[in-house]
Amino acid sequence: MGSFPYPHGRSQQGFTLIELITVIIILGILAAVVTPRYFSMVDDARVAAARGAVAEGASRFYMTFADYTLNNSHTTPAGLSDISGAAYLGLDGGNRLVVGDFRLTYGGGADGADVTIDVEDRGGDGGWSEVDAASATVPWPGS
């Protein structure tokens, strides 16, 4: 009797069909559980980054307000239009400012009213889409 590499005289050629199907089912279950969580985390990260952009926008607004006040003999701006130009906030004609992958839109601010900051995210196609959970209202300084 010759020697066999496996006990009891059987040689193993590979995996059985049942073993392969079992592994495929387990991988499918894992993918079904992990994929939604991954996309949820991607959305959460997008909203968190947009909130960071809004915080930067609020910071820029307050810094610009202070800069205007110091450069104009301690006269405060009457409204957002006084500080929206290229010398200060640098907003475009639609009161928008691009900050990285985000576009901030400033609103309000007339006669000392609160300023709203809305944020849009640049999509993969280059278009802009609003991020609802990341807008903010900041009070006009001194009001």
Rank of each mutant, 00 (worst) to 15 (best):
G100T: 00
D43I: 06
M1Q: 01
S81C: 02
A87R: 13
V98D: 03
R37A: 09
T69D: 01
T116P: 01
T22F: 13
L70D: 01
Y88W: 08
Y62C: 11
P5H: 15
I117A: 10
T69F: 03
N71V: 01
G14F: 07
G123R: 15
D132L: 13
P141L: 00
T22G: 15
G79L: 06
G127S: 15
I18M: 14
L27M: 12
N95K: 05
V98M: 04
T116Q: 11
I26N: 10
R37Y: 04
L104N: 07
E130H: 05
A45K: 15
A110F: 05
S143W: 03
W128L: 05
T75N: 03
L80G: 01
P5I: 14
Y68Q: 12
V98I: 07
G112Q: 08
W140F: 15
A133Y: 05
R96N: 10
S143N: 11
G100Y: 05
Q13D: 08
Y106V: 09
I18P: 04
W140D: 11
D132A: 15
A133C: 04
G79R: 03
S11Q: 14
D114T: 13
V138T: 12
T35S: 13
A66S: 14
G107E: 05
G2A: 04
I26F: 08
D118K: 11
L17P: 00
